[in-house]
Write a protein that binds this DNA or RNA. Structure first.
Length: 192
DNA sequence: AACGAAGTCAACCGCTAATTT
DNA sequence: GAAATTAGCGGTTGACTTCGT
């Protein structure tokens, strides 16, 4: 079958793995002009890529201060705790782990932690009726359903827009609450 | 050594939210 | 205020690597 001719030929964008040359072009352009207007960046940097692809590459790989590999025990612990609190809100979780990206945390969760949790759940008593289901529960549920004390919004509660505004210690303390008392509270009046 | 299964991770896709015109 | 554009997010895919047989 002949390809239909629908107007001016669309430029075919590069897809797949980035080359070192592309990385260099993107980094150099952003260094000079900043990381704004990704479509323009893609165009002006001479990259045959869509803006979306450039943004992703920059955020997940080229950005300065990116930590790569080897998630430490402390980081893993924090991810677990934050996930319990926030569910699959990877960008929020990543915001609490300097140098880590949402994509990396998501991957780490899917390949390592979700399995760990499944194993733990299997070994635990099935009678834990108040088990937390991590995804889209807790906080989001609270936001949607509201409570007797009014709507609780995790984004207001933690100002995630300001990195380190509370410090990890505070968040950790917050999350260290014994699960049972935590859940008792949940049952009583507040869906946290 | 060869092969398939399982694991990992970079990148893409589709969607929504935010911003600009 | 509406429409168009841009940014950002989370889910998913697929190529590559590692492991077990």
């Amino acid at each position: 079958m002949a390809p239909k001719n629908d107007g001016p030929a669309k430029k075919v964008m590069n897809k797949g793995a980035w080359t070192a040359e592309e990385d260099q072009k993107l980094s150099q352009y952003i260094e000079i002009h900043g990381a704004k207007r990704w479509k323009t960046i893609a165009l002006k940097a001479g990259l045959n890529r869509c803006g979306k692809s450039c943004r992703l590459r920059w955020l997940n790989y080229l950005r300065p201060n990116i930590k790569r590999g080897n998630i430490s025990d402390a980081e893993e612990d924090l991810i677990l705790r934050l996930h319990k609190l926030l569910g699959n809100r990877w960008s929020l979780i990543a915001g609490r782990l300097p140098g880590r990206t949402d994509n990396e945390i998501k991957n780490y969760w899917n390949s390592h932690l979700s399995k760990k949790i499944n194993q733990n759940e299997k070994t635990r008593e099935p009678s834990s009726a108040h088990e937390i289901t991590p995804q889209k529960t807790d906080m989001e549920g609270a936001k949607v359903s509201g409570t007797s004390e009014g709507n609780f919004d995790v984004n207001e509660f933690f100002d995630f827009t300001v990195e380190g505004s509370y410090g990890l210690d505070w968040v950790n303390k917050f999350l260290e609450l014994d699960e049972d008392s935590w859940l008792t509270k949940k049952g009583e009046h507040c869906v946290i």
